[in-house]
């Protein structure tokens, strides 16, 4: 079924929160999914799989050298320009495509082109536009070594490789949506008669 970008954003945000991430990380995860979906790149399937794993075994993905792409992406953004002053290696994150929305935002904020590379995948981002040079492993869930480097200024990229950003929703597999909703469900409180009272018209 096709879900709108705002449905994808809201459900992924709640799912991320349900998986145990803080509200701040969860907001970012929702926007990351929205951004990927707007580019018709793998989005909900990655988050559905990753957040489900994470919810069961959070310790495995956080800590001083986190494997979580959402934490690593957020840290790179927090460090701002300094974080990518030169080429950096990101050792071992799972679902590396989830880094892309974060790095794109950083690239735009610092007005610098960035290149993201892992074995079988190579993506460049310049002025907010995404160029997919190689995509053999784009949706990998594996623990992956990722390198991120600045593009030289004045570089010209092949426009045929542009992955357009759209404004339409994205088709989502029922099982992925179900997985996200199950996690989102963990953020809801069962209604009581007490809580319903006076919330809206009763006539």
């Amino acid at each position: 079924m096709i879900y709108s970008l705002s449905e994808i954003d809201a459900t992924c945000k709640k799912a991320a929160r349900g998986s145990g991430l803080s509200w701040g990380y969860a907001e970012e995860a929702g926007k990351a999914a929205r951004w990927l979906a707007a580019h018709q790149l793998p989005s909900t399937e990655l988050l559905a799989a990753y957040l489900t794993e994470r919810q069961k075994n959070a310790e495995h993905y956080q800590g001083s050298n986190p494997k979580c792409p959402l934490l690593v992406g957020a840290s790179l953004c927090d460090a701002g320009y300094d974080g990518v002053e030169q080429s950096i290696k990101i050792n071992h994150v799972v679902y590396p495509l989830l880094l892309l929305p974060y790095l794109t935002q950083l690239s735009q904020a610092t007005s610098a082109g960035l290149n993201l590379h892992w074995l079988g995948t190579n993506i460049s981002c310049l002025e907010g536009v995404i160029y997919i040079q190689e995509n053999a492993s784009i949706a990998t869930s594996e623990l992956t070594e990722v390198s991120c480097s600045y593009l030289e200024s004045g570089v010209s990229l092949n426009k045929a490789l542009i992955q357009e950003k759209g404004v339409l929703g994205q088709s989502v597999e029922a099982s992925d949506w179900q997985a996200l909703e199950s996690l989102a469900h963990l953020t809801y409180v069962p209604a009581t008669e007490e809580s319903r009272r006076g919330a809206g018209p009763a006539d």
Partner: peptide, 22 residues
């Protein structure tokens, strides 16, 4: 909080009703 029933925001009593951890 958000109610499970209708996915709508609700206002609960922190010290009398369940769910404040959410």
């Amino acid at each position: 909080y958000v109610s499970e029933e209708k996915l709508e925001p609700r206002l609960g009593e922190r010290f009398d009703e369940p769910g404040m951890e959410l």
